[in-house]
Design a protein around this nucleic acid. Structure first.
Length: 266
DNA sequence: AAAGACGCCAACCGCCGGCAC
DNA sequence: TGTGCCGGCGGTTGGCGTCTT
């Protein structure tokens, strides 16, 4: 289904992502946010380019991402918006909660494109879409003042269970590298980055348990390293921005009274 | 049962716009 | 104003799974 993993001439890994890589990326972004995609893989302990990390996060690991199982309503919206916008997949995705541009693009080429030419059902959907659009717009206007979600585009397909995720996502996005490791960040319980719970469980815990400092993150009274192997001063990227990490760890130590792994601070 | 064709989708690639300097 | 960096976008590809012959 996906490209076999391989390393390019720069030593960067390409192709399919392993579970271990997913866990490293997820764990890092959950803690520190994506402050700089280009630098992120170095600090997360990944041999990937920043673009690859960003794509993996946005299309697969990001909280609230839905994949497959398109509803008729979603397909109707995609068809309608494609009529209006063309191949503006990101704009179409913005109107469908939890759907990514890549996923919508794939779904269009795999299912809707050909169906829109031949399938009478889709044709019927098309003819209905004008009425439905008007109906949706009316509903959107009606509920616009009720809650923040209704400020989304009129095509929004709502799932109540996702609302907190969406809100949290925007909040989460605002985290910066400078403040994230310090105060008010969620610290997910993790005994081992490579043996995380399922993404769903992980994200549910993450987003529904705000502002919890979980001490299981601290093992043997020491902070575990970010990724397996942790930071090493021998690594060539160590000095690039490591001051920020050093300061952050010092803050953690001072504020929480945690002994930070000397391996990290030496 | 085997082989070729096709479908599907995760991931890559190149380009573009915004921004800082 | 020019240049470089970065994030984001859309087109394309690789390859596994399924279908067809």
């Amino acid at each position: 289904m996906v490209r076999a993993p391989f390393y390019d001439k720069n030593g960067l890994k390409k192709g399919a992502w392993s579970v271990e890589e997913d866990n490293k990326l997820r764990a890092y972004i959950q803690r520190f946010g994506h402050w700089n995609w280009r630098e992120l893989p170095k600090f997360a302990g990944l041999s990937r380019c920043g673009k690859s990390c960003r794509l993996r996060w946005m299309n697969y690991l990001r909280p609230g991402v839905k994949r497959g199982n398109y509803t008729k309503e979603e397909e109707r919206i995609i068809i309608k918006l494609h009529e209006e916008l063309g191949n503006k997949w990101s704009m179409i995705a913005a109107s469908l909660t939890g759907r990514t541009d890549n996923d919508i693009k794939n779904h269009w080429h795999a299912h809707l494109k050909k169906c829109s030419k031949n399938n009478p059902t889709i044709s019927r959907i098309k003819t209905q879409s004008k009425e439905a659009y008007q109906h949706d717009a009316d509903i959107a206007r009606k509920t616009e003042t009720d809650n923040y979600v209704s400020s989304s585009p009129p095509y929004q397909v709502m799932e109540s269970s996702q609302l907190p995720l969406e809100k949290s996502s925007s909040e989460f996005r605002s985290l910066s590298f400078d403040n994230a490791p310090l105060f008010g960040i969620n610290w997910i319980a993790e005994d081992n980055l490579t043996t995380l719970e399922t993404p769903e469980q992980s994200f549910n815990d993450f987003w529904t348990e705000p502002f919890i400092m979980d001490n299981t993150y601290v093992q043997n009274n020491n902070l575990v390293s970010l990724a397996e192997g942790g930071f090493s001063t021998s690594q060539p990227w160590y000095n690039e921005g490591i001051d920020s990490i050093y300061k952050a760890m010092q803050e953690i130590k001072n504020y929480h009274g945690i002994n930070v792994d000397p391996y990290l601070l030496n």
